[in-house]
Design a binder for these strands. Sequence first.
DNA 1: AATGAATGAGAGTTCATTCAT
DNA 2: GATGAATGAACTCTCATTCAT
Lengths: 199, 199, 199, 199
Amino acid sequence: MDSRKAQTHRRIVETAAELFGLQSYQAVNVNQICDRANVNKATLYQHFGSKEALAVATIEHHFERQKADFYEAAMAALPNPVDRLSGIYQRIYQQHLARSDRGESCIGCPFVNILSEMAVGSPAIRDAVQAAFEGLKPYYRLIARDAKVIGYANRELDGDAVSSALIAIMNGAMISAKTENRPEAILENLETAKLILRG
Amino acid sequence: MDSRKAQTHRRIVETAAELFGLQSYQAVNVNQICDRANVNKATLYQHFGSKEALAVATIEHHFERQKADFYEAAMAALPNPVDRLSGIYQRIYQQHLARSDRGESCIGCPFVNILSEMAVGSPAIRDAVQAAFEGLKPYYRLIARDAKVIGYANRELDGDAVSSALIAIMNGAMISAKTENRPEAILENLETAKLILRG
Amino acid sequence: MDSRKAQTHRRIVETAAELFGLQSYQAVNVNQICDRANVNKATLYQHFGSKEALAVATIEHHFERQKADFYEAAMAALPNPVDRLSGIYQRIYQQHLARSDRGESCIGCPFVNILSEMAVGSPAIRDAVQAAFEGLKPYYRLIARDAKVIGYANRELDGDAVSSALIAIMNGAMISAKTENRPEAILENLETAKLILRG
Amino acid sequence: MDSRKAQTHRRIVETAAELFGLQSYQAVNVNQICDRANVNKATLYQHFGSKEALAVATIEHHFERQKADFYEAAMAALPNPVDRLSGIYQRIYQQHLARSDRGESCIGCPFVNILSEMAVGSPAIRDAVQAAFEGLKPYYRLIARDAKVIGYANRELDGDAVSSALIAIMNGAMISAKTENRPEAILENLETAKLILRG
DNA sequence: AATGAATGAGAGTTCATTCAT
DNA sequence: GATGAATGAACTCTCATTCAT
């Protein structure tokens, strides 16, 4: 059961995550977050200390959400590794599609967005994004292992290399979708992901 | 022969391109650009009208530079399409390595950086990045065609799909390099690019 | 009892009203107002949102002051309508005279000043001035009614027409005073005001 | 016959006069004037030395135009002094009406506008306006003299006082028209002018 | 604990004016 | 002599952050 303090904390993080996604870290100001989250500015600063720290919290929040909504969900739905890979792409695509249907433009990957913007200026943010990607790799590593087991992969795969490559192509896919403002671009890169998996 | 005006113009664009790369669009202010380029702020605004317009000019500048230094250079150096693909990756890697040796951290792709930061807020910037990617695709399309000719590709390739996929993996590679602050990550994704080429 | 916020608010409005009067709306910058009022610029903008909004507030401030110091005071001092009209002119003249004695030049009517400068560019300012003039007309209307009652006016007067005419001649008087840098010009136009009242 | 230089001079003054009227002295910038008048900025500065000097020239220009188009025209049209007074008001009203029909808002009197805005900051501008008003008074003085001659005025009029009063009510009329964005307000104050004339 | 009010520093942009060719 | 290019100073407004209650 959430305490009132924890609720406020969550509300701030969720609001910030949403706003950073809709625009960008630097384009969103602390007032907007406070207004939308219905918290006083000083309260926000008591919870997070700085805007940068809040950004780190949003990265962790996105990580937890992506893990649950995309990765765990896809793993739980089907046993076949290729289906699982496909399931991850489908779920991310569906989320982008829903936003697109609401008239919003394609915002891409929250990790890539804040990394591109802030990595050089803020090591803390870079580290948080790196940790998030590391935290997603185990799913790809599992998929790679199973791809060999069922004979989809032609040869023994290097788990590190494959999971890194799959993270890369997923990020590339999100960039394409954002560039062209076209969620379908995500799905189109599933083919490359499968090539990687086949080895 | 460059007129004085053209020289000033170039100096502003090059300085802005460099600074936006070292930090980010929003983190760099117009004063910094003026100081470094040795131009008066009003002069900058007579040349570009707005910071956003200057950003668009830097995107076009990066495009011209990348085309010449990476793509045209790689195409001119060797005839084999796989070597050419490899040449592109090598050249981009070398540039990142040089910066790394100078103690700078890995800044990734200028197109991806500004796109991630500004695509939603500035359609003009998004369009400029999209145009840049489109302008690079012909090189990949040519490589794909030749890959079939020499028998590297297993089957007839869809030029559009392949070039899009190769742009995606290049962007993903740059993201990885930036995330891990490790230029080598670029080269590691050349393997995926080759998989795409093989089909 | 004024809260601290209300005090700050008042200090800003009074300072701005004074400075706008001494120079003009556009000639005074927000920094000058802040310096003189001893307020931070961000504080000013939290209170008023824009320089234009502050200008509107100064117009309302002048209205309240004029109502109290000139119109209510003149009405309270004497019952005879002609004396009251005269009292209004006298009070306004005295104020200008005091400034003149302090070596300041004749600044005219704050409503006319900002209207002349900003009416076309800022409907909000024009509306505020119009409202101020409307708010002063009831005094003239009352004077006109009583002028008939005591037999000063030759005939039944149209309250709207007379009050409008009295506003016009007062404004004309202020223009003359400012043009010639001579407060006496205000008093000289009292004669015309009386003609209007006589009908 | 106008030399090319004199033509340029005229074009600049007329353009500036128009733009200052449409907005205000400070709201119009030198670039706008140059663009609209099709002259180079340095050329403008060779002709006038400063924006303020140009403003003085526009005041003189307005004076010449008003004298010819309103005052001389009204005097030439009819011999009766009351008709002449009426003719002046009618002509000014018609000009405002024409602008109103073109969808422009009521800009008031150019002398009053720039005086209200700049009198305190620029003695040169104040002097130019004062001179303009002085230059118009002879017409009113003539009308006042004739009003006595034909028996319209009840008594011998003080030419100075009457002409000053007529200038004042004309200015007051223009202020009303601008405040209410209603050209008719000009005509409504003709009644007061007649009262002044009757004495 | 919570908040309304305040703040120093700095953002992008524009100005009237002058230089250099 | 005419003009395209440049400039220093100043503009309104906003930021992340902290104080005082």
